[in-house]
């Protein structure tokens, strides 16, 4: 996983609240068996509308998304994060995220930062005034700036540390191999087994 320090890119406003994962990536795209190449699937239904924000030339190549509250609700599909990442997004800012989405984002190096409702409105206004403007996201300082506007965002310390270090989950956990083996040694016999015990 790539280390994340600061990122500067075109910011796209997604002017909707409660964007659920069915909208981020419709179920039909979940049939693929690869881990990459989901850029075409992102917001696939909405992108059929020529006026949709990502179809506007000013926002081509956008890498920061600023959405309304409750982003990523609904199905736990991690493909939602892959689609955002494959399309080129490095950061999503919103006043509230669904838990599972936020967890998935951190693991894939996509920064999901929580901003206040008023900062959300201020960013949308700034983008309306200057479509195609870039935003600089500083993870160390937990701030996002566009023009003269600089807003704080929240991200928990652990996810921030992981993103800054570019650390992979499994490798981290396997550093506890001894504790896992000890736990397994004291598990009760009644606990379920999926295979017939030999």
């Amino acid at each position: 996983m790539e280390k994340f320090a600061t990122h500067t890119g075109v910011v796209a406003p997604l002017k909707r609240s409660a964007v659920d994962t069915d909208q981020i990536i419709p179920a039909v795209y979940l049939k693929r068996v690869t881990k990459t190449g989901f850029e075409d699937a992102l917001f696939a239904n909405w992108r059929q509308d020529p006026d949709f924000v990502l179809n506007q030339p000013a926002f081509s190549g956008a890498s920061v998304l600023v959405a309304g509250p409750d982003f990523g609700t609904g199905s736990s599909r991690e493909h939602a994060v892959w689609a955002l990442r494959d399309y080129g997004f490095r950061v999503v800012l919103a006043p509230r995220f669904a838990d599972i989405f936020r967890g998935n984002a951190g693991k894939q190096g996509l920064l999901a930062g929580v901003i206040s409702e008023s900062d959300r409105a201020a960013i949308w206004a700034a983008v309306d005034a200057a479509p195609g403007a870039t935003m600089t996201v500083d993870l160390e300082a937990r701030t996002a700036s566009i023009g003269d506007l600089r807003v704080p965002f929240e991200i928990d310390d652990y996810t921030r540390w992981r993103l800054l270090e570019g650390l992979d989950d499994i490798g981290l956990t396997l550093r506890n191999e001894e504790a896992i083996a000890q736990f397994e040694a004291r598990r009760e016999a009644w606990r379920p087994r999926t295979l017939p015990v030999a």
């Binding site: 199905s75 736990s76 991690e78 599972i100 998935n104 693991k107 989950d169 396997l174 896992i180 397994e184």
Partner: peptide, 29 residues
């Protein structure tokens, strides 16, 4: 996400994303 179903038995049951699926496969934790 509907893994929550199994909580009806007094189990702690919850949905996870694909990278967590890989994590559980590799570490059972």
């Amino acid at each position: 996400s509907h893994t929550s179903t199994h909580g009806a038995f007094g189990a702690m049951a919850f949905g996870i994303g694909t990278s967590e699926v890989e994590h559980v496969m590799a570490t059972q934790t």
